[in-house]
Amino acid sequence: MSAAALLLSLVAQTLRISVPYGLAALGGVFSERSGIVNIALEGILLCGAFCAVVGTHYTGSPYVGMLCAAGGGMLVAALHALITVTARGDHIVSGLAINIMAFGLTRGGLRVLFQSASNSPRIAAPEGFLGGRLPGIAAPLGAVLFDPLFLGALGLLLLSLLFLYRTGLGLALRTAGELPAAAHAAGFSVTCLRWLGVVASGLLAGLGGAWLAFEQHSFSDAMSGGRGYIALAAMIVGKWHPLGAGAACLLFGAAETAQIRLQGSGVPTQLMQMLPFALTILVLVLWVGRSPAPAAVGQSYDPEGGS
């Protein structure tokens, strides 16, 4: 393989690996900018992957699978919103409880629907536009760039930027996470804004789960593998900004690509598996303090003045 071809295939692989991180981190941006910490991203990724597989398996259409993933993700996120926004419960506890449920639901679902404790049957992934080929560009890169879900993810990133920074509602959503009293005074319902932020995060992370499932052409138990948590770290490193979070996800994607490529090179696999997690800690340590969180994130808001 020539150097250029190798580089292209590395870029393609990095992009592929970064997509679920990116979608989940973008979801994290929506949720945390509105003021709600969303540890449930992990469970949403998992449920999204499961729903994508179920939808695709029973209809044969990956697009129905994507819709199911988005819907399932939003449903799980709605539960998080119900507990944290409406009932004003603790965000981290709610997220962890949802993750425990998500692991149980998907594993139980595997057994009930597919009579397996570990794997679903194989499903079809969406076909790339133009057959995934671009004249003059190597096949692996073309396959990513013309993947419908990849294009959709890029579109969502652009839409998010427009929404958060170019619309009044986006400004209000960010205000709900910085100074909810101001959003309230401006006539917005902080509750609605936060529901919007959390449910949007469910849509995005659910699609991230769908990507995971399509990459693997199946669902396997606990396949989210900590990506939701790493995405949260990427969001912090990216300063709660969609582009920053996206860039951080590319970094994590590149690290994971390196890990996969180095497998079999003599370095023990388990040590390579630690890499993304150790990198996350390292990056967080280096970034903390330079990356201020939304001021009111994690706090419940009660317009009557209580806590």
């Binding site: 009932a87 409880a97 449920m101 594993r107």
Partner: peptide, 26 residues
Amino acid sequence: LPREVIDVLTGAILLVFVAADRLQRG
């Protein structure tokens, strides 16, 4: 039953508790 039912129940117990406890404190 699949034993994962217990995970779902555990999660549900936690969610109800965390929401109800907040109201209770008020």
